[in-house]
């Protein structure tokens, strides 16, 4: 039952990702990417990572992608043209290379001796469990990353000033 659900949502995720590449206008790509992120949130629920599933929707789909859509609407870019010679070269070279990489990884993963699933009490990534680990074992990285995001905010403000 779970496997069937997995295949349905995996198909939707891959189709949306391919649609993101095929679409020419950035806004269509952005909307496809939001679909992929929603599907990933479903996979997190299937993997018992409840907190991350919610954070995925709030932070990725809710904040980062809204930022993307805002910038696309602000700049109002034209559709991408595939006419130039360089573009055609990249299309011919890039897609087969990417597909080779994909085939390689998939073949390796199918043979990989990953071992059996750990039995016993399964950990569930609830907010409480994640918070407990985050504020004990990973407290120092947490503090550092808060400084990092503050610097990112300052950088964004400085970069978008009129005169650079």
């Amino acid at each position: 039952m779970q496997t069937i659900v997995f295949f349905i949502f995996a198909f939707i995720a891959v189709a949306a990702a391919i649609n993101m590449l095929v679409q020419k206008h950035p806004i269509h790509s952005a909307l496809s990417l939001i679909v992929v992120m929603a599907m990933l949130s479903i996979f997190y629920v299937m993997l018992y990572a409840e907190f991350l599933a919610v954070v995925q929707v709030i932070v990725y789909a809710g904040a980062i992608m809204v930022l993307f859509v805002f910038v696309i609407m602000l700049l109002n870019p034209r559709e991408e043209s595939h006419r130039t010679r360089q573009n055609r070269f990249l299309l011919v070279a890039g897609v087969p290379l990417g597909l080779c990489l994909m085939a390689e990884i998939v073949i390796l993963l199918r043979r990989a001796p990953l071992g059996e699933n750990e039995t016993g009490r399964q950990l569930v990534g609830t907010t409480e469990a994640v918070g407990r680990v985050l504020f004990t074992d990973y407290l120092l990285p947490f503090e550092f990353i808060s400084v990092l995001i503050l610097i990112a905010i300052l950088g964004a403000v400085v970069l978008t000033k009129r005169e650079l």
Binding site: V14, A17, I18, L21, V36, N87, A93, L97, M102, I105
Partner: peptide, 15 residues
């Protein structure tokens, strides 16, 4: 892996 490679293809292909 499939999603990652689609990302790679997009990064190379898109201008």
């Amino acid at each position: 892996a499939i999603l990652f490679c689609l990302g790679v293809i997009g990064f190379v292909m898109k201008r």
